[in-house]
């Protein structure tokens, strides 16, 4: 095995050039090194001006999402040896404006996320003295998959609808809304209905399915969206056919 691999890093430094440029670095090819370790090596030993985000290095924080050889990946969970002999192209996450080098502006997602109210909503909050809201393992299984989301935004990066339609609410936000809609303790489904069923919500999705392919946590946002489409369509029919009281 060669002992080095080339990382082709797409760099954007607006004070120098208005367009991104590719810069190549030779980094050690070590068996347990992730792409993120290669970038850290560059930062520490080769070029301290390189900017990128990271935090936990163990696939939990969702900070280090980048485009690796064209695919959206968590760079802490993607290994250099899988790309040997290289070169490996590292670009910022697609579909987000680039601030600098590999750092993107995630403001759009942060604005959208709270609009689906991703927290447990109760009609009446029972007092703490009454104890926890209990839940059976079966009830937990209903939403557990969708609760694994780490907000890494790889699904937004993979989604062509989001690329073309920036107002689209997007995969993770809808999956997280479903995470609470399907939670037996939650009573807020009707509060999420308007935003989810708007033209910028579920109906903008054309089921490309790439969000689910990109998700590092197997959340399957595409399934969450299709399930909600069926729910919303059934609800619309009921609203149309049944009198107000019987819904």
């Amino acid at each position: 095995m060669a002992d080095e691999i080339t990382l082709e890093v797409v760099r954007y430094r607006p004070e120098l050039r208005i367009e991104p440029v590719v810069q190549s670095y030779q980094v050690p090819l070590r068996e347990h090194w992730a792409i993120l370790d290669g970038l850290t090596y560059i930062k520490d030993h080769l070029d301290g001006t390189l900017s990128f985000r990271w935090s936990c290095r163990m696939g939990i924080c969702g900070s280090c999402g980048m485009t690796v050889n064209g695919d959206p990946q968590l760079t802490c969970a993607t290994f250099l040896t899988d790309y040997a002999p290289g070169p490996v192209r590292v670009e910022p996450l697609r579909n987000f404006p680039v601030i600098r080098d590999l750092v993107v502006d995630i403001g759009d997602f942060m604005d959208k996320l709270p609009t689906v109210k991703p927290w447990v909503i109760r009609d009446v909050d029972s007092p703490v003295e009454e104890g926890e809201y209990l839940q059976t393992p079966e009830e937990l299984d209903e939403y557990k998959q969708f609760s694994m989301c780490i907000n890494c935004m790889l699904c937004y990066s993979a989604c062509p609808v989001y690329a073309l339609e920036p107002h689209f609410l997007g995969p993770a936000a809808i999956a997280l809304a479903q995470r609470y809609n399907l939670d037996s303790r939650d009573e807020g489904a009707s509060e999420r209905e308007d935003i989810l069923s708007s033209p910028e919500g579920i109906w903008a999705c054309t089921f490309v399915g790439e969000c689910s392919a990109a998700c590092p946590k197997d959340v399957d946002p595409a399934a969450a969206i299709q399930r909600y489409k069926l729910t919303a369509a059934t609800q619309a029919i009921k609203n149309f056919l049944l009198p107000r009281g019987a819904r």
Partner: peptide
């Protein structure tokens, strides 16, 4: 100044 990657027509 943010960089927006252009989307090709035949993306």
């Amino acid at each position: 100044s943010l960089y927006h990657r252009p989307i090709p027509l035949f993306w």
